[in-house]
Write a protein that binds this DNA or RNA. Structure first.
Lengths: 189, 189
DNA sequence: GAAACCATTTGCCATTTGGCAAAAAGAGAT
DNA sequence: ATCTCTTTTTGCCAAATGGCAAATGGTTTC
């Protein structure tokens, strides 16, 4: 909970009463490795804050290949925005790829907080807009680089992820095959 | 101006008085082909709405190659968000790639409207968050596809752009060389 | 129309990456 | 330690893409 409070206070000020109000709505969710936080086809109903573990967002492309769109590390919000906001079925799976500990907010509670706490909506907007910008900034440059450069960029962006998850997830994030990535890794060292 | 009003009313309601207030702050900018709307190294000071023409956002990567990050077509907002919001120098060039007609808002006026018009901030947040989501959704899938598929996706996403701009911009958007793209195009037809 | 200036296509070959299958290396469970 | 299951590395060859330079095609200017 402490990490979450610190996180939100980076984006704006809240008094102790407001913080308590928010805290009281949070529940703890332990999500074991490989389980889903939300699934394609379903309407996202909750917002999470990862206090421990790594989550990925992935989908299946037209060839049936599983593509990892991005990773989300500790101390970040996780929510399938498009689905959550517009109440439409999601097109992606949000999956724990290590054992995870989350703070959880139901959609009802989340909206209640938005209506109740003055300034909370601004904070949420800032958080979400920063997260979206970050996704663009991280994924976009991969398009124009060769596989080795892409892997190096991955290492820069997610320095704490590489040793905790299977190589195949990284390969699908970078758009290379697992064997190519394995060779790339050999060449680098 | 009519297009702009229609555009913003998609995201929320405003009364005539509010619409007038917004309209009065807009000025018209004609941006000839190849000129910049905002530049890398400078702090973005304005928000535009493209009523006619195509703009691209591009930057130079470590190898000095010019990379097109995305295109923005008619009836969309154009603003270098990161720079505009945080008042930091931009890392990208925003360039007209056809002759453009824009509605222009200065930062001062834009902020004044945000403070004055109730509900305008919510509309702006919705617009921006949708635009950011769209950027992620459009660019992200390119990473994991081969060059031909990427070009086909480009055609789907920007059906009205392909014949109005140089091939080299499309190539740099897709992360392929211009000659490869030329060959791909031949193979498709 | 000729000249000059672009953008686009093509040829040739080198390099990168993919596809597939087998081998090797790790990680539990008993 | 052994067996089993999963992940990672390798080998082999085919396919895709890049790099470079020349040729072609299109526009504008005079």
């Amino acid at each position: 909970m402490k990490g979450f409070i610190e996180y939100i206070l980076q984006f704006g000020n809240l008094n102790q009463q407001q913080i308590d109000l928010i805290s009281r709505k949070a529940t703890v969710l332990e999500l074991p490795k490989d389980e889903y936080f939300s699934e394609a086809g379903k309407i996202a109903q909750r917002v999470g804050f990862i206090s421990d573990g790594i989550i990925r967002v992935c989908y299946y492309n037209n060839q049936g290949e599983e593509i990892t769109k991005y990773f989300i590390e500790e101390n970040n919000l996780v929510v399938d925005l498009e689905s959550f906001d517009n109440e439409i079925p999601s097109s992606a799976y949000v999956q724990a790829i290590t054992d995870c500990k989350l703070l959880l907010f139901s959609k009802k509670d989340w909206n209640e907080l938005l209506d109740t706490i003055i300034g909370w909506d601004t904070i949420v907007h800032k958080i979400i807009s920063k997260a979206l910008r970050q996704k663009v900034e991280r994924r976009s440059p991969l398009v124009s680089e060769d596989a080795t450069t892409r892997y190096l960029k991955f290492l820069e962006i997610y320095p704490n992820v590489v040793n905790r998850i299977p190589l195949s997830y990284i390969a699908s994030y970078l758009g290379v095959t697992q064997s190519s990535l394995s060779r790339i890794r050999k060449n680098i060292s």
